[in-house]
Design a binder for these strands. Structure first.
Lengths: 235, 235
DNA sequence: TGTACATCAGTGAACGCGCGTTCACTGATGTAC
DNA sequence: TGTACATCAGTGAACGCGCGTTCACTGATGTAC
């Protein structure tokens, strides 16, 4: 492939033109291949067809590149979740399920972003803008939970939306990181991660007293009358 | 600390006596400190006070050491879960909750093992005995789910135990890996990971139609009569 | 009980390697006049 | 429209470092007789 490098070099001339972007893409590829741990500043440079010193014009060090990726990942993640949620259309519960599917789809289709975001070991609060990006993504789940909580049937205590959101997030993340990645040597499952998560969320919602009748199924569970939530009084 | 090394060396003489064990312990310490990715064969040797060539008497390479750790981790994990489950005493639901707590306790108290087991990126099926150890640990959750499923109240369809087990596992793993680790820079929570997971599991179980009345609370939710489970027919 | 010898666990020096980082440099680009 | 100059992005050579791995070796231990 060295001709490739030459060709690139020839094509682009002395200046790369868009090295920052190229480095991000290269790193993304490398992370997807070898995991967030096994990617190297020098490797990224090599892949972008540029000398090992060049990246220093754009990133202070490896960590800054990595957290740029994580940040961009959170932004794309947020966009995807926003789109999936679609402001709760056509109905809150099914939009909620789409959210879960979108979560898994992201983990599956963008394993490199997902690693950088959740498994790279970089401290979330090292970088303020990274933290913000991460919070904005979570805010979508939070907002969806809020909307869903507000729909609690009469007689059912309204669950704290924050807690719901954390529950949904942990289910999604759990399924995604245990079963939802492309990498060959994964645990075998009797069903797809998507179905697994969908069932999990539906059972959970039913446990909160929500009717989960949009599924092609027999009569919905009648809301449990008057019992308070299992985490204590609602607020 | 070089006197320490000398002292050790003086104490033990030419032969270490228990180097294999010492290397495992050293690696465990290093992983806890810097994560599974940032631990080094040479580092482990140094920490055990031994030349960098010595570890090769006991492990083919870094990966073999790492997977030994993962294996041992799964064994301890299994032991802990078995103890927590305590064969379903005093009652199935509370034993089930203890299982969840034990899961989190393990992730919190043994972050190095947990990393090696779930985040080290070593293919689960690379090593047959590792795979077995991992499956034996999961089998505890599976067995507990089986027992719980068998207790489904009359009129409630019996949920597939395998699916239940996978759901519980994903919740536990999700909470543990998002919120349950010691490492300083973690996300802030309005409640403890333990409480978060406990509530999550309880709501889930209620969603399956189980009474969750062992909590200090008002009247239990009456089992939802006759509705089939949200994942379709029971089997 | 003592001696000879085989086996084993750890030594220490050496190697090649790739990484991160620095440095003075140079080619390209844009802008002021 | 052309020229001089400042700025900028990338070069390539060099460095020190620590890692993984190998090798012939040697000190310690155990065992046969």
């Amino acid at each position: 492939m060295s001709w490739r490098k030459e060709e690139r070099r020839a094509e682009r001339g002395y200046h790369h033109g868009n090295l920052k972007e190229a480095l991000l893409q290269a790193a993304l590829g490398l992370i997807a291949e070898k995991g967030a741990a096994g990617f190297t500043f020098a490797d990224a440079a090599r892949m972008a067809g540029v000398s090992p010193a060049a990246p220093y014009r754009h990133f202070r060090d490896r960590d800054e590149l990595l957290s740029s990726i994580a940040q961009r990942g959170f932004e794309q993640f947020e966009a995807l979740l926003t789109q999936a949620w679609d402001d709760g259309r056509p109905d809150t519960v099914s939009a909620f399920q789409r959210l879960g599917k979108a979560y898994l789809a992201f983990a599956r289709n963008e394993p490199a972003f997902y690693s950088a975001m959740f498994e790279s070991g970089l401290p979330v609060d090292s970088n303020a803008t990274l933290l913000v990006a991460s919070e904005r993504a979570f805010a979508i789940i939070r907002a969806a939970s809020e909307r869903l909580a507000a729909l609690a049937p009469p007689g059912v205590p309204r669950p704290p939306a924050m807690m719901m959101a954390l529950h949904i997030w942990s289910m999604s993340h759990g399924v995604a990181s245990l079963f939802g990645r492309g990498d060959a040597a994964r645990r075998k499952l009797p069903m797809s991660p998507e179905d697994l998560l969908e069932a999990e969320v539906l059972i959970y919602l039913r446990g909160l007293g929500f009717p989960t009748d949009r599924r092609p199924e027999p009569p919905p569970v009648p809301p449990a009358g008057g019992a308070s939530g299992p985490w204590g009084a609602s607020r």
